[in-house]
Amino acid sequence: MDDQDANRKFQKELNAGAVALVLLSVLDQSQVPLYGYQIAKLLEKHGDKISVVKQGSLYPVLRSLEKGGLLDSNVEPSVTGPPRRYYRITPNGREILAQWVAIWQQNTSFVEAILEGTVDVSER
């Protein structure tokens, strides 16, 4: 129980920035604007439920990315329920994404190097 809590907490902290990166990247690769539910379904298909990110918490992140000018959105009526907000990436968002990808890759290669033991950590 304690272990599980610790694992959840670790995963949550790891996810904090990754979610924004993933959302930006998904919208960058998509040819058409996507709405929240579509994105959640896409991630679910590939995520195999390993992530502890609740689908509902994607929405505040989408909103904050829009607020920061990285995403752009428009509302269109839907047949099933309330109007839907479709998101697409902005040119500014693309620039930021490229920078974030670079940071992410630097970060992961560093962490992997440490985990694989290829970095000499012994004291001299």
Partner: peptide, 22 residues
């Protein structure tokens, strides 16, 4: 269960909304 409980979602909004300013 996938989407999150109202409490979890409310918490996510609270955490992010404080960082947002128009």
């Amino acid at each position: 269960a996938d989407f999150g409980t109202p409490q979890e979602i409310a918490k996510a909004y609270r955490e992010i909304e404080v960082r947002l300013t128009p």
